[in-house]
Simulated assay, not measured.
Amino acid sequence: MLLCAALFAAAPAVALDRGLVEAQAAFDSGAFGRAALLARKVQTGEGDALASRAEMVRGDFVATGEARLAHFEAALRDGRRAVARAPDRPEAHLAVAVALGLVARREGSMAAHFKGMASEARDHIDRALALNADNAWAHAALGGWHLEIAYEGGPLGNVVYGASAEAGIAAYEQALALDPANMSIAWQYAFQLAGFGGADRLARASELIGGITARKPRTALETILRDAALELKQALDGGDMAAVSRIVAFRLGRMEPLDRSAVTPGKR
């Protein structure tokens, strides 16, 4: 089970608390470590969810090696604290769901299965949707859950978890119907589709990637996503499927490059 930090990394602060506003500003500027520290100091569910998002981005796009897992585990702790403080906020449950996917990525699919991570993540996604059926992030998280399990487990993923590529695609399309301008959702969806392959899926991935690369980034995270999208667009436009596979595998955490510093920004 794998979910990317980008899937839930750009949700705006939902309160007017000065500390939360400062934390969100730090996040948007790319100071993800500072954002996490400031968000925790707020001591609310919203603050903890933002801290979780910041740690996810640090682990997914900034850190290297074993430090990545440390950030994902910190994100999971923040997410669980967010749920404890604000159980009726969808973003708290989504923080746990996405962090579980990222921890599972590092521990391996079999270990994640026996620890019940996929089932727990799905429970939190379902809870987020029950709290707000029109939450685009929740539909995107559901799409990511289905597509990754279907990719990793094939027919077995459907038997064990009820996951399917068709359900994942439908959930992502619903998410984009609710929030068409959401770059993070479009990015994750495009990369997962490209990973599956097939003419129709690659065509949709190319369409989404083209939309991302045509936009001007508003935040540091969107700049990271846009740059990664440009890399994938070049491979897709050139029909270089080996490069597509390599780029997608790296960006979705299925492999580590020899020199990660060549494709990610410096630590913050």
Rank of each mutant, 00 (worst) to 15 (best):
L100I: 09
L100P: 00
L100W: 03
A104Y: 12
E107Y: 06
E107C: 04
G108R: 08
M110Y: 13
M110N: 11
A111W: 08
F114Y: 14
K115G: 11
K115Y: 11
G116M: 08
M117I: 08
A118K: 07
R122Q: 13
R122C: 05
I125E: 01
A128C: 11
L129Y: 09
A130R: 15
A130S: 15
D134A: 15
W137R: 15
W137Q: 14
A138V: 06
A140D: 01
A140R: 01
A141Q: 03
G143M: 05
G144W: 01
H146P: 02
H146G: 03
H146E: 10
E148Y: 10
Y151M: 12
Y151P: 00
Y151I: 07
E152A: 13
G153S: 11
L156S: 10
G157E: 04
N158F: 12
V160Y: 13
Y161S: 08
G162K: 07
A165W: 07
G168L: 02
G168S: 07
A171V: 12
A171R: 01
E173C: 07
L176M: 15
L176A: 11
A177V: 06
A181P: 04
N182M: 10
N182D: 13
M183H: 00
I185N: 00
A186P: 00
Y189F: 15
A190S: 02
F191M: 02
Q192T: 05
L193D: 00
A194L: 02
A194D: 00
F196A: 04
G198H: 12
A199P: 02
A199N: 11
R201V: 01
A203R: 14
A205N: 05
I209H: 00
I209C: 02
G211M: 09
I212F: 00
T213Y: 06
R215W: 02
K216M: 08
T219A: 06
L221F: 04
L221S: 01
T223W: 06
T223F: 09
T223V: 14
I224Y: 08
L225M: 13
R226G: 05
R226K: 15
A228Y: 03
A229M: 03
L230T: 10
L232E: 00
K233T: 01
A235Q: 01
D237P: 05
D237E: 14
G238I: 12
